[in-house]
Nucleic acid binder design. Structure first.
Length: 271
DNA sequence: AAATCTCCCTGTAGGC
DNA sequence: TGCCTACAGGGAGATT
């Protein structure tokens, strides 16, 4: 599934094909995604030139002089550059046909993603306005996370997965980072010390940085055509390993559910 | 304000 | 083999 590293790698992969290029036509085959595809994308994008691309959290951004296309990949979405010889398949919901013939193709089986138009500045769009810091920038640090957590009674896992606190930490990363930091996912956010938040921030940065490195590799295969598997899975320490031995202490990993989401942890290594 | 719940959707895995 | 059900998950929006 597209995590922040894959969104960033997608952006880098499509950027050179789009920048300075003009949209000739949009073809929307399925307009019911998470929200209906914006009318401005369906009928008002042709003729506009894409000046640059960007990313905020897991939102991919395509800028023109008049506004910005906001793309979210949900959990099954992808974008790739194709040419007109490649026929649209099932779940290829949208094509952005560029004036040089390149096509940005949006694919999303589960339709949890979106294609929206926003006025500038896009940071003021309701979807982006209240997002927390990027996990790899300096404003995401131990002090920040500690301060934000004071008085919070949610489990720390829910806390770090809240995009208003920090963006890009999905279920997989949250599980992995908490294991690396030796913190149980159900520990209340408000109860953890500044020291432990400092360690947690380091672990979140590390797991996401690593996934970016590996995610890039995945994406190259992905964009290249055959889609699959993703080397990041090979690095998983706890996620998807419930019932298996902890790689540190060999104790059996336990699975619990927190707000309809699975958490896996080691009762020996995490407290 | 903060916490909790619901829902959007389809491919896949597991049970029979 | 094939059918059926449960489940996975990002995250906004509604509800408590």
């Amino acid at each position: 599934m597209p995590e922040l590293p894959e969104v960033e790698t997608s952006r880098r992969g499509i950027d050179q094909h789009l920048c300075g290029n003009t949209v000739a036509e949009t073809r929307i085959r399925q307009r019911m995604l998470r929200w209906p595809v914006s009318e401005q994308i369906i009928s008002g994008l042709a003729g506009q030139t894409i000046t640059h691309t960007g990313r905020r959290g897991k939102y991919l951004l395509l800028f023109t002089g008049l506004g910005c296309v906001i793309i979210h990949l949900g959990m099954s979405g992808s974008v790739r550059i194709v040419d007109s010889s490649q026929p649209a398949g099932k779940h290829d919901h949208a094509d952005f046909v560029m004036s040089d013939g390149a096509i940005l193709r949006y694919h999303d089986p589960r339709r949890f993603g979106c294609l929206l138009w926003a006025d500038l500045p896009v940071e003021q769009h309701s979807l982006l306005r209240s997002l927390g810091p990027e996990p790899l920038t300096d404003d995401f640090n131990g002090c920040y996370l500690f301060e934000r957590s004071r008085g919070r009674k949610v489990p720390v896992k829910s806390f770090v997965m809240d995009s208003h606190v920090v963006v890009g930490v999905g279920n997989i990363y949250a599980n992995e980072a908490l294991f690396m930091a030796g913190i149980r996912p159900q520990t209340l956010a408000g109860k953890l010390s500044a020291r432990r938040y400092s360690l947690l921030v380091q672990c979140i940065r590390q797991v996401i940085s690593h996934a970016i490195t590996v995610g890039g590799t995945t994406l190259r295969d992905f964009v290249g055509g055959d889609g699959k598997p993703g080397y990041f899975q090979q690095s998983l320490l706890v996620y998807g390993r419930a019932g298996k031995p902890c790689k540190t202490c060999a104790n059996t990993l336990i699975e619990i559910r927190q707000n309809q989401r699975s958490s896996v942890y080691c009762p020996q290594c995490q407290d």
